[in-house]
């Protein structure tokens, strides 16, 4: 598959969104709303559930299913309160010693007036800082689109994985094409240049794992994801905290060293 086909696949209508992962990979999920500062952001779903019996905090970007749902979720583009809700729930997870699983799916943090007025940049920056030293394991999985800083704000983790047909990029291919060639239609070329597919990113050492998808049955992908998440968390259960955090720091420190 060409890079551009991956872009289309990652955005395809009918592709499972975060709630479907939550319902199929975890059990006993209870959603927890609000950032306790301003509001509740529908683009970010957070709560507690179980992974193979163990309690975990789950934070996910949700694009929505029906048109009405999509609007309520702002098409998966969070405002600052979404990132602040995520951070609140991460701090809660840290307090109760629960691991965190993040599911990333956004075309980007919302570029709106309200978002700027409420400090979009600061909200993302705080997550990057705090996640780096959060005293509990974090695993992030890109399930669709990983759009720039808005995605990274849920992906400063011990391991970052990608679904086979997801993408992760510093800028949308459309944005890149219009800057580079002043032609938003050259998306195909831009997709290629940006190296945004799971395979590219695995090669660049930006992700640790690719989760294969099957065309017909997504159940197998959920099954695999559950198994690997359990193993990743089991591997970290007895790891001393300073070692966990040192590894997380080094994981990001190595890029461009």
């Amino acid at each position: 598959m060409e890079a551009y086909d991956k872009v289309l696949a990652a955005r395809a209508k009918g592709r499972p969104t975060a709630m479907e992962y939550i319902n199929n990979v975890f059990t006993d999920f209870q959603e927890l709303h609000g950032d306790r500062r301003y509001g509740d952001d529908g683009a970010v779903v957070g709560g507690i559930g179980r992974l193979c019996g163990e309690a975990v905090t789950i934070i996910a970007q949700e694009k929505g299913g029906s048109t009405k749902d999509k609007i309520a979720r702002n098409f998966g583009s969070p405002n600052p309160e979404g990132y602040r809700k995520a951070l609140r729930l991460m701090k809660q997870a840290e307090k109760f010693g629960r691991p965190v699983v993040c599911l990333v799916d956004t075309s980007g943090a919302y570029p709106g007036m309200g978002a700027e007025e409420r400090g979009q940049g600061l909200a993302i920056a705080e997550n990057l800082m705090e996640m780096m030293t959060l005293k509990t394991p974090i695993i992030s999985v890109l399930i669709g689109e990983g759009g720039s800083g808005g995605a990274l704000a849920l992906a400063v983790s011990d391991e970052v994985w990608m679904m086979e047909n997801s993408i992760y990029s510093v800028i949308s291919p459309e944005g890149c094409a219009s800057i580079l060639w002043r032609d938003a239609k050259k998306v195909r070329e831009a997709s290629q240049c940006l190296r945004l597919t799971a395979e590219d990113l695995y090669e660049l050492g930006v992700i640790e794992r690719i989760i294969p998808e099957s065309d017909k049955d997504f159940g197998a992908a959920y099954e695999l994801l559950r198994t690997w998440l359990k193993k990743a968390l089991d591997d970290r259960r007895d790891l001393p905290l300073d070692e966990l955090l040192e590894k997380r720091y080094e994981r990001f420190r190595k890029f461009g060293k």
Binding site: I179, R195, F252, G256
Partner: peptide
Amino acid sequence: GARMQEGILSLMQMAKTSGAVKRHSD
């Protein structure tokens, strides 16, 4: 902002620098 021409590696600099700021702050 991030430098488009270095793709995802630019994005990773946001996490890397934030980590260093956090350690300095701590």
